[in-house]
């Protein structure tokens, strides 16, 4: 069949009428926030600490899953409605309120338009006053540790590590150097202030004259580490 002008016209009509909305709007309400303890951000590992958002009242109950950013931020685009926010058991370097029935407490969020909800948690420890400096290719970190939970739930320090990477993602799985990272064993820590760790940065390909560093604290019996904020260090 030869294509004539009216064929094209019919095609155009079809295409234009196909543009009619045949679906729901995408969700637009942004639920965001960060992990905090008394206003101080909790830093965690990239893609390691998950959270779950439920919408109660439906027949099937499955969660919207996400993980916190390294600086403790989270964000989800959702429809307006009532949600329950929770963190699965044994996740995160902090305590989350347990309910007596063996279930986890959850935070109810009534979402109407975008909203910021900070998640208040109690970490076992905090890494504070972390300072990073470079002499040559050696990165040195000095920091203090604050023990936050001191009651019956208190846990010991397993190790404190210094992680250095060429990108802003800095943790055990994303770092420069092979083998064990520089560390102080928990048993070797006597004072909680002015602790120090250092790391010799190997050659980076392609060359860059800066690295990112942070200190991670492993709590005995807890899988996730708590970190200091990421800091950019310029090598000399």
């Amino acid at each position: 069949m030869k294509i004539k002008f009216h064929h094209i016209l019919i095609g155009l009509f079809l295409a234009a009428s196909g543009c009619k909305k045949d679906n729901y709007d995408a969700p637009t309400s942004r639920l965001s926030g960060r992990l905090v303890y008394k206003g101080e951000a909790i830093n965690v590992e990239y893609n390691a600490v998950p959270y779950q958002i439920y919408q109660p009242g439906f027949a099937t109950k499955s969660a919207i899953q996400g993980t916190f950013d390294p600086d403790g931020n989270y964000a989800q685009l959702l429809f307006d409605g009532t949600y329950k926010f929770t963190i699965p058991a044994n996740q995160g370097p902090f305590m989350w309120k347990e309910l007596p029935a063996g279930t986890r407490d959850s935070l109810t969020v009534n979402l109407k338009g975008s909203q910021t909800v900070d998640i208040e948690v109690t970490p076992y420890y905090l890494v504070q006053n972390a300072k990073f400096a470079a002499t040559g290719r050696k990165v040195t970190a000095t920091f203090d540790i604050q023990k936050v939970i001191t009651d019956a739930n208190a846990k010991n320090i397993d190790h404190v590590y210094l992680y250095v990477n060429k990108t802003q993602f800095v943790s055990g799985g994303y770092r420069l150097g092979d083998g064990d990272p520089p560390s102080i064993a928990g048993s070797a820590i006597t004072g909680m202030n002015n602790l120090s760790l250092s790391f010799d940065v190997p050659n980076i390909v392609p060359t860059q004259n800066y690295v990112f560093a942070r200190v991670g604290l492993k709590i005995a019996g807890v899988e996730d580490l708590i970190f200091s904020p990421v800091s950019k260090v310029t090598l000399q």
Binding site: T60, S62, A63, P88, A89, N90
Partner: peptide, 17 residues
């Protein structure tokens, strides 16, 4: 899977997930 738990709410979730 969530589909299994949705179909049978008596199934408890695995630890650490």
């Amino acid at each position: 899977g969530d589909d299994v738990i949705a179909a049978n709410p008596k199934i408890v979730k695995q630890p650490n997930q």
